[in-house]
């Protein structure tokens, strides 16, 4: 018994030391990018395209730009099947709008985990395993690696630097797709899980550099009390009742506790920027999640369809959402797409 206890404590100890060690290393990519150390070593890799490459024969600006920042399972610019399906159908729902899903929010040097990195081979292996089985432990190491980057984004000191790097990655494809700077065309960031934190952090830079109104749709987002929330016009937080992850930010970030009424989160909440959108019995990821097209709601609609319709409605008719929301719940306002009012969603499509 004693031996078992020693082993258990030994394991916990090793885990803790490992955690602290990797947490220590987590900001290094950001810092080496910011100080220019990284660029000197890898001259061509990290440079963003020059405007002469960006500004192609004038593209007609779209009426709306949407950037999807995937959760911490993302490894490269291409997407997992379910995410891509969601993006393709969202694009169909929003004719004319630009939908961008290629940004990897967890590398400020804009390098996929699967190439041009010392551990690229490992990450390719992990990705292959993850694609076969999303519960795979090796595959899950991708999530842990990216979770550390979300922690860096949420840190009050590293965060502003990391989020500037992330904002550059978002701004580049926007410009390539012809975003007209200063035109006031809305930019909507959809952040899934940890992607929502990066989106909130990047918001002030996008707003300032593109002079654009920035809205955030948090798909089960894990968000800290990021100062960037002050620069978000509206935040819609979509969360399922079986999701045990989306609430982590609310629990772990002191700025989200009611005892700090002057935190950026609580100020934005009081200003009525937040809308809570309950999504029914959806889970955070995998089977039964927001992007699952097998699981279905009571009305026969599958989860993916419902998520799509809700997101589409928010993007197409934000005024209607805000008009129909009621003062209720932990985010001050609530909009229930599954409530008795739900038929209006159909009307919107």
């Amino acid at each position: 018994m004693n031996e078992l206890l020693t082993q258990v404590f030994g394991l916990i100890g090793v885990g803790l030391v490992g955690f602290v060690f990797f947490l220590f290393l987590a900001p290094l990519e950001t810092l080496s990018w910011w100080t220019g150390l990284y660029n000197r070593r890898n001259k061509d890799r990290t440079k963003l395209a020059k405007p002469k490459d960006i500004v192609m024969p004038p593209i007609k600006p779209a009426p709306h730009y949407i950037i999807f920042l995937d959760g911490i399972a993302k490894v490269a610019r291409d997407n997992y099947e379910d995410v891509q399906k969601f993006l393709d159908r969202l694009e169909k729902n929003l004719p004319g709008a630009v939908v961008i899903g290629s940004v990897l929010p967890y590398s400020v040097t804009n390098r996929p985990l699967t190439s041009a990195r010392p551990l690229a081979r490992y990450w390719r292996w992990a990705k292959a395993r993850k694609t076969g089985n999303y519960k795979d432990l090796i595959g899950f190491s991708i999530n842990i690696r990216n979770m550390f980057q979300v922690i860096v984004s949420a840190d009050s000191r590293y965060g502003p630097i990391y989020n500037l790097g992330a904002a550059r990655l978002i701004i580049e494809p926007l410009l390539k797709k012809g975003y007209p700077i200063g035109s006031g065309v809305p930019v909507t960031l959809i952040g899934y899980s940890g992607g929502a934190q990066v989106a909130a952090g990047a918001a002030p830079y996008i707003k300032e550099l593109l002079r654009a109104p920035v809205d955030l749709i948090s798909l089960a987002g894990v968000i800290s009390a990021d100062p960037g929330l002050n620069d978000v016009r509206f935040l819609y937080h979509l969360a399922g009742s079986k999701d045990g992850v989306e609430n982590i930010g609310a629990v772990l970030c002191p700025g989200r506790w009611p005892i700090l009424p002057n935190s950026s989160w609580n100020r934005a909440k009081r200003a009525g920027k937040f809308t809570y959108v309950p999504m029914g019995p959806m889970k955070h990821n995998g089977e039964g999640s927001y992007l699952d097209d097998k699981a279905a709601l009571g009305n026969g609609k599958n989860f993916l369809e419902h998520t799509l319709e809700t997101v589409t409605f928010i993007i197409k008719q934000p005024e209607a959402v805000r008009a129909k929301r009621v003062k209720k719940g932990k985010l001050e306002y609530l909009f229930d797409p599954l409530g008795p009012e739900s038929p209006h969603i159909k009307g919107a499509l």
């Binding site: 440079k47 963003l48 395209a49 020059k50 002469k52 502003p160 630097i161 300032e208 550099l209 620069d231």
Partner: peptide, 17 residues
């Protein structure tokens, strides 16, 4: 963010022209 932006604008300018 706003302080970094002041520093970064120069940098973005240099990197992206």
């Amino acid at each position: 963010a706003h302080a970094l932006l002041e520093q970064a604008e120069v940098r973005l300018e240099r990197e992206t022209g």
